Simulated scan of single mutants.
Amino acid sequence: MRIIDLSSPVDSGSFEPDPVVHEVMSPREGALHMRDEMREHFGIEFDPDVLPDGEFLSLDRLSLTTHTGTHVDAPSHYGSRTTYGTGVPRHIDAMPLEWFLAPGVVLDVRGREAGTVDAADLRKELDRIGYALAPSDIVILHTGAAAWSGTSRYFTDFVGLDASAIAFLLDAGIRVVGTDAFSLDAPFGTIIAEYRRTGDPAVLWPAHVAGRHREYCQIERLSGLENLPAPYGFQVSCFPVKIAGAGAGWARAVALVDD
């Protein structure tokens, strides 16, 4: 089995609308930190200089949102109420793990201007690759946006789903939809321009708003889709980090390909 990385990194050196702060405690600083923590919490005195090179374990402190890097959005990300089930959306720590290890299919929507694709576009691509959706599938959009990851363009130049496209996937029983772009919806500027043109609130983040009425998860900010040998015939593993009460969780998404 071959493992293909489909994840983008959490990188404090890259452009992010919500900046990432990454503080590194060196092994020497880690040894001194351990000495101080043992003294404060356990009343134990310890000389770190007896350790090899006077060093112990490094430590990383990060300040970032759960939507940095490759991540899975939970139903609670889309709003505080739902029109399905109990009316209360589930957080990321409550989602079934079975959702996040499943057959994957990639729909190629590259080469388009920033904006949206609709249900007809998705049907056309499925016909082109000769694939019929199954409810357990993880459907991934290949927009090409990953090429701009780490730059401001990544957040403004990509393709998302319109209301008809997300309805088409959810009607097919799909529970997890992914993209290599910043968002499964169109860029902010595109959405606001369309709303000003039409005055129709239905154009405002339809892929996310759909999650208030149908339970599903998104995987955003994938990468490396061009390394897949085919648009289907592989498994996707994208287990989200179990953050209690969170609307999203980081994921190390990979494709599992049988050789």
Rank of each mutant, 00 (worst) to 15 (best):
G178L: 04
E194C: 08
D258K: 13
A94P: 01
V257Q: 05
G150T: 04
T179S: 15
S164W: 00
L59E: 10
A202Q: 08
P206M: 02
E194S: 12
L6E: 05
W205S: 13
G130S: 11
I3Y: 03
A253Q: 03
W99T: 02
T66H: 07
A181V: 05
R175M: 02
D200P: 03
P201M: 09
P89N: 10
G245F: 01
P103N: 09
H41W: 10
L107C: 03
G111K: 01
P206S: 05
G160N: 00
I4N: 07
L228K: 05
D60T: 07
G189V: 10
Y232Q: 05
D11N: 14
L59N: 12
I192G: 00
D108S: 07
P89C: 09
E113W: 04
D49E: 15
E55Q: 14
T65K: 11
L57W: 09
R214A: 09
P89Q: 07
A145T: 02
G85C: 09
Y216K: 04
P96E: 06
I92L: 08
L59W: 08
A244C: 09
E40V: 10
A253E: 02
E220L: 11
R175N: 01
L204P: 01
H77T: 15
M25H: 09
P187L: 10
L133W: 01
T198I: 06
G54F: 00
D93F: 03
I4D: 08
T143W: 08
F100A: 10
V24H: 13
G69E: 03
S7M: 05
G85M: 04
D18V: 14
R252P: 01
F234M: 08
A244D: 11
M25G: 10
I138T: 14
T70F: 04
G104V: 02
S76K: 10
V209W: 00
A163C: 02
G85P: 05
S63T: 13
H67G: 14
L64W: 04
S12V: 05
F15D: 04
T70G: 06
A172R: 10
G87H: 05
T65D: 03
P27Y: 10
Y131Q: 04
V254G: 06
G115K: 02
